[in-house]
Design a protein around this nucleic acid. Structure first.
Lengths: 258, 258
DNA sequence: ACGTGTGAAAATATTCACAGCT
DNA sequence: AGCTGTGAATATTTTCACACGT
């Protein structure tokens, strides 16, 4: 995944890099890592509401998973709960923060300031969750030099300098698909090791670089798939009405019958 | 209680479907569904370049996966390749389109027209990949009535009417976290069955409704985790006991192990 | 009592490797 | 000779269920 590894989102990201050396360092499974961010969000919410202790059951509910999965996930970080009691909200928050490497606010570069890029530049969620947008970069002359959310847009030719000057390890790519691989190459050679890609393209990167992608249309397509299935199945339709159990027209759009 | 199906990016989605109806319809695994959208994108690109036939090897490269996985994925749709030759681009494109339910352009409602919502409203990728934004909805009086990308913004109180009038099954939620559950409830009661949620909140929905979430900060946090590992972290969380709580200057790039 | 932490079982997903069709 | 389709082998993830600490 990411690296296309997925996010499963999604989707996936890539992975790789073969083996883990014997010296196992508590490797946290990928699926777990993806959920830690959600747990963290839930914990912060609880903390703000003054909750000091939480059980796996309620934290799981707040995060939208089941409690067994939550406990198993947390167990990869170590043993921070108290039997019979639950988890201390601040201890666990701290621990997940540390695991995710969010202790220092990480500097992020945002490349591409079209509609999406501009929206991302103003997204408060980045700042509040551990990231500082340290540079805005675009290739369009009309944009370069303008100020946006407190930063001056810089030209993509400055990219390498900026990355080095600001010690940027993570970049967000929001350029058109046609430009994405080029931007990606520049980022990689400037030393960026993690990329969040919004362009609908597969990026080729060396194995030490991690790419996660967010493909908005793909998300809708996945929903569409399930929706398609649903509408062919009367049973699921809500208990309330009469169920018309009429058979599905075999005209099939639904699946494959093999 | 509300059932919910959450899914994480790459993984995990829903469940269900227990029964295996005799008429087995080879249900497509969730992980496969998530990749079909990527294959489709790659196929369309190939088609536009005039490629008529493609091997699993090259399609896989274009989609950023390995060929065994691609073939296995495609095999769930049926048998559309030709041994010794490869896949016909248009046949396969068509087939994936059908599987994803993209035959009819699906009407989508977009709720929330802040920065992100406005960017999404103008995102060409939706239209080109099977979706038609049929309604823009917001609660803010200053926005309601304005025109945006050819549509007039409507008030959220009209939501139920709009959904019914336009036969909307899929909605994109881009409102602030605090408003998301309320909007979601309205959508569900109006009959929407699939929701793409950009608000950083867990949505509670009945089990016949599907929610996918896109959490931008979470994506960065996942990258941060891997990045943290890459740069070699002095403190190993966990298991072995006491952690020295003193903060270590993270500047150090310690040797990577791998 | 209560709720964590975790082995073991079950379910999913990925990869291998090759038989079989063109 | 080339490439798909797929069982079988692996690997990963989820779920179960209960021993154990508080």
């Amino acid at each position: 995944m990411i690296a296309q590894r997925g996010q499963l989102n999604a989707v996936g990201a890539t992975v790789d890099q073969r083996s883990v050396p014997a010296t196992d360092q508590r490797s946290v499974p990928e699926a777990t890592v993806a959920r830690l961010a959600t747990y963290l969000r839930a914990l912060i919410g609880l903390g703000e509401h003054g909750v000091a202790t939480v059980s796996s059951e309620s934290l799981a509910t707040a995060a939208g998973v089941n409690s067994a999965k939550l406990r198993k996930d947390l167990s990869y970080l170590g043993s921070y709960g108290v039997r019979g009691v639950g988890y201390d909200v601040s201890v666990l928050t701290e621990q997940i923060n540390k695991t995710l490497g969010l202790h220092q606010n990480r500097a992020v570069a945002l490349i591409g300031l079209g509609h999406l890029g501009q929206a991302l530049a103003g997204y408060a969620g980045f700042a509040s969750r551990g990231f500082r947008i340290a540079a805005l970069i675009d290739a369009h002359p009309a944009l370069v030099g303008t100020r946006l959310h407190g930063l001056t847009v810089q030209h993509v030719d400055e990219l390498a300098d900026i990355v080095r000057r600001e010690s940027i390890a993570i970049a967000v790519v929001a350029v058109p698909a046609a430009a994405a691989q080029d931007v990606c190459d520049r980022l990689v050679s400037a030393g960026v090791t993690s990329i969040l890609n919004f362009a609908p393209t597969v990026l080729n990167v060396p194995s030490h670089v991690d790419v996660r992608k967010v493909d908005l249309a793909a998300e809708l397509q996945i929903l569409s798939f399930h929706d398609n299935r649903k509408s062919g199945r009367p049973e699921c339709a809500g208990a309330l009405g009469a169920e018309q159990s009429l058979a599905v027209p075999s005209t099939g759009k639904v699946a494959v019958v093999r």
